[in-house]
Amino acid sequence: MARQADSNSLRLSGGVFTLTVLRLQSLDPDPLEQQWQEQSAALGILQGAPVVIDLADCKEQEISQELPKIIQILRQRGCTPVGIRNATPAQQAAADQLGLAQLRGMESSPQSMKKNHQRPELTPASPPLEHPLRSGQRHYARGQDLICLATVNAGAEVLADGHIHIYGPLRGRALAGVQGDETAQIFCQRLEAELIAIAGIYQTLDPQHPLWGRAARIFLDGEQMAIMPLEK
């Protein structure tokens, strides 16, 4: 019996997924194979993971012959390539043949990404938050600094593209420079945070921290998070 087309057989919905990006330095399969064997323990986390192949460093190379081999190696190692990005048109054509999706976003090289990650154009800060931010509440100052006059309680979260100033105890989470601005800083009158982060580099805190309960300034010193007392 022919099945009637069921109007409920398909539902579209959206989702945001985190994928591992494998950035190939070369399209030669042999070094890949070799490196995989040498670092099998570290790369073991890719077992069963969907990965995206980033070809930003292989712009000059012809891929049509090599890509199928690379895909095969990845599959043998247990990961599932689902797409490519930063591909040249020729590379894209090869990927199409293999049924890999083209993924967009972050197409630039890391050097120019750094440039994008400089302090974005910030608009003047909104009026300060006057009331305590409570457990379960979250406040994001998009394209702005964030100023909070009251407490950020445990379980609450403040985020800003720029700096975060908290003129009360910080007991929850504070994430500054969430778009990647590494010059963003966090200032608080009393550091009792659950988590602090700047440009994606984060740290959890506990009461054993030497600056616990004190006024503090948090910033990035290279890749390291620095926590300094505010008072001299």
Binding site: H131, P132, L133, R134, S135, G136, Q137, N153, A154, G155, A156
Partner: peptide, 13 residues
């Protein structure tokens, strides 16, 4: 105290 804080946030919102 934590749950009270949460409910205060909900009251405000």
């Amino acid at each position: 105290v934590r749950d009270s804080d949460r409910i205060l946030g909900i009251l405000a919102a």
